[in-house]
């Protein structure tokens, strides 16, 4: 029990981030018209591409060649997620803009 309490206290900043981010996420999506669901999903898809930062860190840190190869692959995949995600979203939203 004591261990758990200390662990929570030690990681309280992390818990703050988690809880507040969840609320922000819920808040940000609330009351979005159905029409925008697809672009929004696509936009959120691009944002989780931030995982690429982790892949870059792996490449900067690793000292093994296997790590380097897998990291290289991970950075390519992450870039696909980021670039593809943002470009597709932009193309969808461009359609919305033309109307007026």
């Amino acid at each position: 029990m004591e261990q758990i309490i200390t662990a929570i206290a030690e990681h309280r900043q992390l818990l703050y981030i988690i809880i507040l981010s969840i609320f922000v996420g819920v808040e940000v999506i609330g009351n979005v018209p159905t029409v925008l669901h697809t672009p929004l999903m696509s936009g959120a898809n691009a944002i989780h591409g931030v995982v690429i930062v982790g892949a870059i860190i792996v490449m900067l840190k690793t000292e093994s060649s296997l790590g380097m190869v897998l990291g290289f692959l991970a950075v390519i995949l992450g870039t696909l997620n980021v670039v593809g995600g943002f470009v597709v979203t932009d193309r969808m939203l461009e359609m919305f803009k033309k109307k007026k």
Binding site: I17, I18, S21, I29, I47, V50, V51
Partner: peptide, 13 residues
């Protein structure tokens, strides 16, 4: 950046 981006998309998604 990974934390906020990730959780944000997790909850919004």
């Amino acid at each position: 950046a990974m934390q906020t981006g990730g959780i944000l998309v997790g909850s919004a998604g």
